[in-house]
């Protein structure tokens, strides 16, 4: 029965089960209150915004480890500019611009050299963190109260603005992934980049594009991060790459490239949000969350590999069955 469901469907079931679990375990039905339940997304929206482009990158068989620290660096630059000029639009521009430039650096290295993305972005990750250190020292940075106001707003009493932003971005990415030539090329590159090159597609440009997009989204994520009235300091961004990659992998995107959906990543983002909030309401510390998250990453990797292997067998057998059936039809037709 399980093999009949699509991966996003399985994830949705996991999400519901998880919510039910916390609803039961946390007293007084606190967890099911709309404000709490919908609020679970506010803690992970900035991660989800980075997980969307990360999905596109992992689809090609690549990875971007620099996301967390790039978000921190662009957020910090944004905050500095805002403090100096007092102009929020300028600050926003700086955040997005810094993210874009950082992402373009990743894209340039990954597409123009033969350095594996893992190593390339490991290097730039350190560069971005260095920038945060160098410019910000040991200070913590905040942003304008206007940003916090927008970022913490709730509509209809409980619907967080963070969730609205995440959903809009999800719809845009999902549309691009499903409908555009880019979406098609990303899958194909993940399976066999050579063959895509031999189809007259400039895969270097595609790769440059998605790493740059990832950087841009880091800048965007920084704004929503500030919107939660979080502060940025030189350690911000640590382990965020692991959280983001966990969302993508839990969402059913294969780290080998080729297989994956934006939809899966979105639901996985919601799952991580529920997990995080649920654990903290149960009184568990951040260490427990890290422990659980690492476990989720590994388990989903194994589970996905298992499901894939089964699916392969299923689709193979179906394929052979279809072939024989059509052969029978052909002979019958004659």
């Amino acid at each position: 029965m399980l093999s009949r469901l699509s991966y996003p469907q399985i994830l949705t079931i996991i999400l519901i089960v998880l919510i039910a679990f916390f609803a039961i375990i946390i007293p007084n039905g606190v967890f099911l209150r709309p404000r709490v339940l919908l609020g679970t997304t506010t803690d992970v929206a900035y991660l989800g915004l980075m997980a969307l482009p990360m999905t596109l990158i992992i689809l090609t068989g690549g990875i971007d480890l620099s996301v967390g620290f790039l978000m921190a660096a662009s957020g910090m630059l944004c905050s500095m500019v805002f403090k100096m000029t007092g102009s929020l639009p300028l600050g926003i521009l700086v955040a997005l611009g810094a993210g874009l430039i950082g992402g373009a650096l990743n894209g340039f290295i990954v597409s123009r050299t033969k350095i594996p993305p893992f190593i390339a972005t490991l290097g730039t990750m350190s560069i971005f963190n260095g920038i945060t250190w160098f410019v910000g020292g040991s200070h913590s940075f905040t942003s304008s109260s206007a940003l916090v106001e927008i970022g913490s707003a709730r509509f209809f009493g409980s619907l967080p603005s963070q969730l609205i932003v995440l959903v809009i971005m999800f719809l845009i990415f999902d549309f691009i992934h499903n409908r555009s030539t880019l979406g098609r090329y990303l899958h194909a590159i993940g399976y066999n980049e050579n063959a895509v090159n031999f189809s007259g597609v400039n895969t270097q440009r595609v790769k440059f594009g998605i790493y740059t997009l990832s950087g841009f989204m880091c800048g965007f994520a920084a704004l929503t991060f500030f919107g939660r009235s979080f502060e940025i300091n030189s350690t911000t961004g640590l382990n965020m790459n692991i959280e983001v990659i966990t969302m993508v992998v839990l969402g059913g995107t294969s780290v080998m490239g080729g297989v994956g959906t934006i939809r899966g990543t979105f639901i996985a983002t919601l799952i991580v949000g529920v997990l995080r909030k649920g654990l903290s309401l149960m009184g568990a510390s951040g260490d427990v969350y890290n422990f659980v998250l690492g476990g989720v990453l590994i388990v989903s990797l194994i589970a996905f590999a298992y499901l894939e292997a089964r699916k392969k067998i299923v689709s193979r057998t179906n394929a052979i069955k279809n072939l024989t059936e059509s052969a029978v039809e052909n002979t019958a037709g004659k």
Partner: peptide, 26 residues
């Protein structure tokens, strides 16, 4: 020549995908 993990259709149109797309939408 081909991305063998993808479908007959996806392979057939791989090199002319931009020609059958409108503003990058297939």
């Amino acid at each position: 020549g081909l991305v063998i993990a993808m479908s007959v259709m996806e392979n057939t149109t791989m090199s002319i995908l931009d020609q059958i797309s409108n503003k990058s939408l297939i």
